[in-house]
Amino acid sequence: MISLVGTTALVTDSTAHLQPGVVEACGVTVVPLQVVIDDDVHDEGSEAATPERVAAALREKRAVSTSRPAPAVFSELYERLAAEGADSILSVHLSAEVSGTFESALVASRTAPVPVTCVDTRQVGVATGYAVESASAVLASGGSVEEAAAAARERSSSATSLFYVNTLEYLRRGGRVGAAAAVFGGVLAVKPLLGIVDGVIVPRAKVRTAAKAIAQLEAMAVEAAGEQPVEVCVAHLAAEDRALALAERLGEQLGELVVPGRDGSPVRCLELGGVLGAHVGPGMLAICVAPVPPSPAGS
């Protein structure tokens, strides 16, 4: 049983990549999305859908897709949380532009036994996780659900999400970029740099080599940080050495501007989960730069 924050239950999905310690400390209920490998459906985070298994399936050109939680999953969860004592629920999720998860939560909210506020962060991955943490901080300080939802939206809108992929093919297969863009990138051997703008994946730059692309990704992240305190996370799929080196360089460049994560590292480094990994493919590197908001009043 999750211990509720006051009388408000906080919900998110598995793509937020919250650390286990954060899930427990913030009292968050995490709803898994699914990875489908061939005809087998697995919850993200299960042994059958680890990042390693997903990356291997992609390399083997097996059929890999993803699936959102059905509205019934959220309905059952909201009913359970209400039965456990919640008199309101805040449900914070990845961009509705790239997943139907928010829509499922919204549909379920209409028949929930207690008021449910659904937040579309217009972000993916760790940026959504940072939004959840900001919402939790507001609730823990005695803030209202509306204030916590506003904090989540503000945190996600201020975050910068950047990523490099070896190929656009996996994004094309999942319908996240057009076929013409994917063909263009393949024909010209372009190494694309992408970002999230208002919930949509958009091109940020086209670079000829992987080394130059990663260098530009790093420079863009430093520029996004500016002169303000930030939390920074590097994510990867089957590219741990590159990711660790990138995280170390960012930590050195940003210095005291970086607010260390709960694990004590200046720049958090993680392997992307199976759901997002299925759409970007092995070799992907991502950086999230999130300005740190002031502490909520009363905290």
Score class of each variant (00 low, 15 high):
Ser157Gln: 01
Cys288Gln: 06
Val177Ile: 02
Gly129Met: 02
Leu90Gln: 02
Leu193Ser: 09
Val187Lys: 09
Val145Gly: 09
Glu271Val: 08
His279Ile: 02
Ala238Leu: 08
Pro293Asp: 00
Gly281Phe: 00
Gly125Leu: 10
Thr66Ser: 13
Ala247Leu: 12
Ala210Gly: 14
Glu76Tyr: 10
Val41Trp: 02
Cys233Arg: 08
Ala72Ile: 11
Ala159Leu: 03
His236Cys: 05
Leu10Cys: 15
Val165Arg: 00
Pro291Thr: 08
Gly129Pro: 01
Val124Gln: 09
Arg62Asn: 01
Phe163Ala: 02
Ala205Gly: 10
Leu18Cys: 10
Lys191Val: 04
Gln216Pro: 13
Tyr170Gly: 03
Thr160Gln: 10
Ala211His: 11
Glu146Ser: 04
Asp198Arg: 15
Thr209Gly: 12
Ala189Asp: 05
Ile37Thr: 08
Gly45Tyr: 09
Glu60Arg: 13
Glu133Ile: 14
Ala247Phe: 08
Val267Gln: 04
Val54Asn: 01
Lys191Pro: 03
Glu271Thr: 10
Ala238Trp: 01
Leu272Gln: 07
Ala219Ser: 14
Ala215Pro: 15
Ser144Cys: 08
Ser134Pro: 04
Ser161His: 10
Leu171Asn: 03
Glu147Ile: 02
Ala140Ile: 05
His42Asn: 12
Glu256Tyr: 11
Ser95Met: 00
Val119Thr: 12
Glu231Val: 12
Ala224Arg: 03
Ala225Glu: 13
Val187Pro: 04
Phe184Cys: 12
Ala63Arg: 14
Leu194Gln: 05
Ala49Asp: 07
Val23Trp: 03
